[in-house]
Design a protein around this nucleic acid. Structure first.
Lengths: 234, 234
DNA sequence: TACATATAATAGCAATACTATCATAAACAT
DNA sequence: ATGTTTATGATAGTATTGCTATTATATGTA
């Protein structure tokens, strides 16, 4: 069994819904390929238009600019992650096991979900690692935030932090821990590939120094009862 | 007593050493003001040249492009941080206390160091929070890394991870923990200001939910002896 | 005095980030 | 079947960005 997922995204992310037309779907699909290949800085709507043998003006009818397109792609990814996390945890009762599953998915384990999509999710995953931070590290962050463009990320973060609180109801930093896990997952995937002296995480490793191992250690030692006393001494 | 610090940076970060001339120092000083004001995306050498009533061509004689300038500024900041950390910890014997001091400095506590500089360090600190990730999240990261442009950050990270190992010699992720602390410090400063639903950290707080509190909790619970057993269960 | 060096002044060019206009073809409604 | 909306393509154009080249001038050095 497999189905095509319909991910609903905030209407302010686009001018015309790209899911609704063939050209729109092509723009999304091929922009992922191109951004993955060139990097967001070198990616332009003109190059995209040439690549899909359309025109710059047509692309601009779907997305206001390339930054909005990035926000769209990243939001789509968080929704996809949300779906996968739900799929793999809805039957799990134990909160600690839920968090471990979350971390496994976050770390990029691509299991077999009954889900097909228009997009190359592997490539999109690489884009998220390299470019996702740029979606909010801008002077326009407050405007974008007021428009609800980060809502999907915030929802997902909140959802997981409820699991964190289930594990340790008195832990004082659930959202901070979860957003740190999100950021750390991306950064250490990147460091492992490009700046390995900044991390012990090795992607090909089967031993202790896996990304999942590090994130689990980080999360669960923060949430252990003993930890409450340890960090308090400032 | 106060002295003007001479921070030595990798010669590949610039074409002509900006510390050596009046124009060079002006370029550095005013680029910090402008990037802080406009954000890195909206900052251009033309705007800088107009601001300092010089010419674009003159700026290009010092820095190859604005990305190299960003790398220069960020490297300068890590060096400054390194200096401050050394200054505040060289007399401290206890490793845990050293790490706490490091975290306090990283979190942006600007104590009184006998150091004057050409630059507005507060503004540079804000630039590091908003823009530092962009210095390495590029397709050119491997080239830049081979040229040694991230060396200062890597050195600092390594230095602190030796302290981490002093606290717990069997902790398996010292560099990963330290780079996570660096990233987390910046991200939660940013989140607290712009996306507060992603963190419990509050900058004006005097209570439990300070940035220093979160980072200490994260670091020391990871390093506690009990933590070794907790995270291992995958 | 001759010479090297740094900067300013100016120009120019290719690429980027758009915006506008118009023609055409498909879809849809009457 | 006909008129109308709608999506796309084709084309043009503009301001800005990123960068290079050339020349003139001022300043200090041998």
């Amino acid at each position: 069994m497999s189905a095509t997922i319909r991910i609903e995204l905030n209407g302010k992310l686009f001018l015309r819904d790209p899911e609704q037309t063939e050209l729109g779907r092509t723009i999304v699909r091929e922009s992922i390929r191109l951004i993955d290949e060139l990097g967001f800085e070198h990616f332009t709507f003109k190059k995209l238009a040439q690549h899909i043998t359309s025109t710059e003006a047509s692309v601009y009818r779907y997305f206001e600019n390339k930054h909005k397109l990035l926000l769209y792609l990243v939001s789509w990814y968080w929704n996809w992650l949300d779906y996968r996390i739900s799929y793999h945890t809805h039957h799990v009762a134990d909160a600690a096991e839920k968090l471990r599953t979350f971390i496994r998915i976050l770390a990029g384990s691509h299991g077999s979900e009954p889900l097909e999509a228009n997009v190359d999710v592997q490539a999109l995953g690489r884009i998220v690692v390299l470019e996702a931070s740029k979606a909010y590290l801008t002077k326009e962050v407050d405007t974008d935030n007021k428009a609800g463009l980060f809502q999907d990320y915030k929802n997902l973060c909140h959802k997981i932090s409820l699991v964190v609180l289930e594990i340790n109801p008195v832990y004082p930093f659930p959202h901070a821990l979860v957003s740190t896990l999100f950021e750390a997952a991306r950064k250490h995937l990147f460091f492992a590939q490009h700046l390995p002296s900044l991390t012990e995480v090795r992607l090909e490793s089967t031993g202790e120094n896996t990304l999942v191992g590090f994130l689990n250690h980080l999360a669960f030692s923060s949430l252990s009862k003993e930890a409450s006393t340890v960090g308090a001494s400032l």
